[in-house]
Amino acid sequence: MNNDLSVGIVVFPGSNCDHDTIAAISSLGAKPVVLDYRLHSLPVLDRVILPGGFSYGDYLRSGALAAAAPIMDAVEQAAADGLPVLGICNGFQILCERGLLPGTLLPNPSGEFICQWQAVRVASESPLFTGLDQGRVLRLPIAHHEGSYRVAQGQLAELFERGQIFLQYSDAEGQLHGLTNPNGSVANIAGVQNRNVVGLMPHPERAMAAYLGSRDGWDLLASWLGMGENAVC
């Protein structure tokens, strides 16, 4: 199928979702390429993923030290050149710290690490996710302590106007309300995009098979890989 599609997966010290992400990308028929955080340049790639975990032990701030790792200069340059970049959970935090995505992720107001299944709604159709319609509800796991998405005062309307809000925490019917907001994120935001860079708190790589609870992660990643609805098991 997409055997020629190379997907770089950056491994930082403390990444821990890299193996799940490698397995997910492989199962979709693309070729995972493991990238060490000390690299100063990227090989030829079609996509890059910053996986979840606790890079640098979450020291200083989640994602702050990884955002300054050597490979991130190359990732930033590649993103500027149009390479699609996906940050999952800690990867999302890294992209925000690097300034490639707007906003930041604060500790959950509950003070708890939240680990649960969560419905998220596709807030706007994205050229990065072909075939994933606006309003589609996905069932995905979340697992984070710093997931409360916030933006600078006055920036929120702009993000909506530009269609940069990609995913929002919702109920199973796609309704948005406070009860379905697990972590106090502004406007229930679970994922944002900035041109070809996207970050999301849920873990699609942990939702690759119905017998494990959900296959919606498969749909999301297949869509991001440009395989849309043509992806098959």
């Binding site: 640098y56 032990g57 020291y59 200083l60 030290l65 300054a68 790792a69 050597p70």
Partner: peptide
């Protein structure tokens, strides 16, 4: 201080 050491290393890399 592992957090301090990690931060020092990143500053040096920068």
């Amino acid at each position: 201080d592992p957090a301090g050491q990690a931060t020092r290393n990143v500053l040096q890399n920068m």
